[in-house]
Computed example of a mutant assay.
Amino acid sequence: MLVHPQFDAVAFHLWKWPIHWYGLMYLAAFGLFLWLGNRVVARPWNAARGWTRRDVDDLLFYGVLGVVLGGRLGYVFFYKPAYYLSHPGEILAVWQGGMSFHGGLLGVLVALALFAWRRGFHFLEVGDVVAPCVPTGLAAGRLGNFINGELWGRAADPGLPWAMVFPQANDGGIPRHPSQIYQFLGEGLLLFIVLWLFARKPRPMAAVSGLFLLGYGVARFTAEYFREPDSFLGLRAFGWSQGQWLSVPMIVGGALMMLWAYRRAARLPAAPAMR
């Protein structure tokens, strides 16, 4: 069986400042967003609605705030509310670890709503532009999880060729699923390919956003069967983890958004929404 390589969390030092792998993954995520976002807004139907590269730069700024604040507050209130209510001074101590994707998503939605209001775009149109650019960032984050040897998987059959021992688990060498890699492949690469191909043609407003919610929800729900639940939470009703329960609204909401988008498009003339 394989053993986690035990990477040093610090990639290198810049003068006396340690540069962590996870920080580099965030930097890669933001860089990929800019590159992909510029390609998305250059598509004829988006350019015709007034989208520019400046909008992508501004979206990144809004999105970073949403990811960091929402991700941290989501972890605080979704996973450890009792602890942080009794230790309020640690709520913003992001350097201690603890971020939630679902909280980050809510933070980004608030940030996108603010961007849409200030720039005169429809909120759902903004979501359609952003959605295809998100999975590569998720992939980078999961790669960072693997490098750090955190968020490891559940116990696996020792005969599984890619079963891996995570010494950080202090479990006596139990072979586990490398669930970070599963999530890297599922909610990262696979979801990116599906969304990128889907968004290469004009789609009804909210269809791309709906597909993102649906696709991520399904990928995350499935991966959670192989990911070790948080020790302080365990499994909830139906044997589902907290991550699975938080993914259910995404699956339902994404499916309903796509249904609404195509039904709405069938009732409207085939013309792009204008600013």
Rank of each mutant, 00 (worst) to 15 (best):
residue 198 F to L: 09
residue 68 V to T: 04
residue 245 W to N: 07
residue 98 G to C: 07
residue 209 S to F: 13
residue 232 F to M: 13
residue 67 V to S: 08
residue 12 F to P: 12
residue 225 Y to E: 12
residue 150 E to G: 05
residue 53 R to P: 01
residue 180 Q to Y: 03
residue 24 L to S: 06
residue 62 Y to Q: 02
residue 259 L to G: 06
residue 32 L to V: 07
residue 14 L to Q: 10
residue 30 F to R: 10
residue 164 M to W: 12
residue 99 M to D: 03
residue 89 G to T: 12
residue 54 R to C: 11
residue 228 E to H: 15
residue 13 H to W: 13
residue 53 R to E: 14
residue 186 G to P: 00
residue 149 G to S: 02
residue 192 F to V: 04
residue 150 E to T: 09
residue 235 L to F: 08
residue 264 R to T: 14
residue 22 Y to E: 06
residue 174 I to E: 12
residue 255 A to F: 14
residue 173 G to P: 06
residue 78 F to D: 06
residue 72 R to H: 09
residue 40 V to A: 03
residue 163 A to T: 03
residue 214 L to Q: 04
residue 200 R to G: 09
residue 275 R to C: 09
residue 38 N to P: 00
residue 123 F to V: 01
residue 100 S to F: 00
residue 10 V to C: 01
residue 114 L to H: 05
residue 135 P to I: 09
residue 188 G to P: 01
residue 93 A to G: 10
residue 195 L to G: 07
residue 81 P to F: 07
residue 150 E to L: 05
residue 185 L to V: 13
residue 222 T to Y: 15
residue 19 I to H: 08
residue 11 A to F: 08
residue 116 A to W: 02
residue 261 A to C: 07
residue 166 F to L: 01
residue 20 H to M: 10
residue 75 Y to F: 15
residue 71 G to C: 01
residue 148 N to G: 02
residue 234 G to W: 11
residue 221 F to K: 04
residue 224 E to A: 02
residue 46 N to M: 14
residue 146 F to L: 12
residue 79 Y to I: 03
residue 240 W to P: 00
residue 154 R to F: 06
residue 127 G to I: 05
residue 50 G to P: 01
residue 127 G to K: 00
residue 5 P to V: 08
residue 199 A to D: 11
residue 29 A to D: 09
residue 164 M to P: 03
residue 117 W to Q: 15
residue 130 V to P: 04
residue 94 V to L: 13
residue 52 T to N: 05
residue 52 T to F: 09
residue 144 G to Y: 00
residue 35 W to E: 05
residue 1 M to Y: 13
residue 80 K to M: 11
residue 51 W to I: 07
residue 233 L to D: 04
residue 218 V to H: 08
residue 74 G to P: 08
residue 89 G to Y: 02
residue 32 L to Y: 12
residue 98 G to Y: 04
residue 274 M to W: 08
residue 157 D to F: 00
residue 272 P to F: 12
residue 235 L to M: 08
residue 71 G to R: 02
residue 85 L to H: 02
residue 2 L to A: 12
residue 251 I to R: 05
residue 238 F to N: 10
residue 72 R to T: 09
residue 275 R to Y: 04
residue 100 S to V: 05
residue 158 P to K: 10
residue 77 F to A: 03
residue 46 N to V: 03
residue 169 A to K: 03
residue 32 L to R: 01
residue 11 A to S: 12
residue 216 Y to A: 11
residue 60 L to W: 02
residue 66 G to F: 03
residue 176 R to Y: 12
residue 134 V to R: 05
residue 136 T to I: 15
residue 50 G to W: 10
residue 90 E to H: 10
residue 69 L to V: 15
residue 261 A to S: 14
residue 233 L to W: 09
residue 39 R to S: 07
residue 167 P to D: 12
residue 226 F to T: 06
residue 144 G to W: 00
residue 214 L to Y: 07
residue 158 P to D: 08
residue 194 V to F: 13
residue 157 D to C: 01
residue 17 W to V: 14
residue 172 G to L: 14
residue 179 S to E: 05
residue 275 R to W: 07
residue 31 G to C: 14
residue 185 L to R: 01
residue 56 V to L: 11
residue 132 P to E: 06
residue 186 G to V: 04
residue 213 L to F: 14
residue 173 G to Q: 10
residue 26 Y to V: 03
residue 9 A to P: 11
residue 209 S to H: 03
residue 167 P to L: 05
residue 5 P to I: 13
residue 54 R to V: 13
residue 256 L to N: 09
residue 113 A to M: 13
residue 15 W to Y: 15
residue 139 A to Y: 00
residue 28 A to K: 00
residue 243 G to L: 03
residue 159 G to V: 04
residue 162 W to S: 02
